[in-house]
């Protein structure tokens, strides 16, 4: 399917912010069209999370770029933002009339918990593709404790993991060289 249309679909049905986009993108890009592997998807997530800007637009920019270059980025971004911009403009203009309708509020009362479930569910699938084992399961757990309990920004978690991984990797390399010398 065309990138613009795919992302228009994703953007239009993202209710409640960027994280709500994750299950939709995973469904469209990883499971349906298989344009990305689950690992690539996680890489794009980490990158979009670590950089400034609107999370969903960052994701669209990178995914579009990986699939179709610069043109892909532009069409994915336009797809993501066009319908939402049009809708919120309409709402801004018609605001008073819409917010008085109880059915609109009722629909949203039921939609919100489902949005949360949709965000929680990919955790299970993505955990498998991230190859979590007993020796590494402390990393996601530590991330949850830091972010959900201690209120640390996910940006710092990503920066911290990057720094620790580089230090650990270089340290391991050194010991490997030392062992070879001793042999």
């Amino acid at each position: 399917m065309n990138l613009f249309l795919t992302f228009a679909k994703i953007g239009t049905f993202t209710i409640g912010g960027g994280y709500a986009m994750i299950p939709l993108m995973e469904e469209e890009l990883v499971r349906k069209s298989r344009s990305l592997t689950a690992e690539e998807f996680l890489d794009v997530l980490a990158l979009s999370q670590a950089m400034p800007g609107v999370f969903a637009v960052n994701m669209a920019a990178v995914v579009g770029n990986r699939l179709k270059g610069l043109k892909g980025s532009v069409s994915a971004i336009c797809g993501t933002v066009l319908a939402p911009i049009a809708i919120i403009l309409l709402v801004a203009i018609l605001y008073r009339r819409l917010s008085d309708n109880p059915h609109v509020e009722h629909a949203f009362m039921a939609v919100r918990p489902v949005v949360v479930a949709l965000i929680a569910a990919p955790v299970v699938r993505l955990a498998k593709s991230a190859k979590i084992g007993w020796s590494t399961c402390w990393i996601p757990v530590a991330a949850v404790v830091l972010i959900a309990l201690l209120g640390v920004s996910p940006v710092w978690v990503i920066v911290g993991v990057m720094a620790l991984a580089v230090v650990y990797f270089l340290g391991r390399k050194k010991t490997n060289i030392n062992q070879q010398i001793h042999k």
Binding site: Y19, E39, A46, Q49, V115, V116, A130, V141, A148, L164
Partner: peptide, 22 residues
Amino acid sequence: FVLKMLRLAVVGIIASAALSLM
């Protein structure tokens, strides 16, 4: 190696997003 570690952390980040929305 860094990407491999990041993928693990991102799983935790999404989980906390879901938790904080409950």
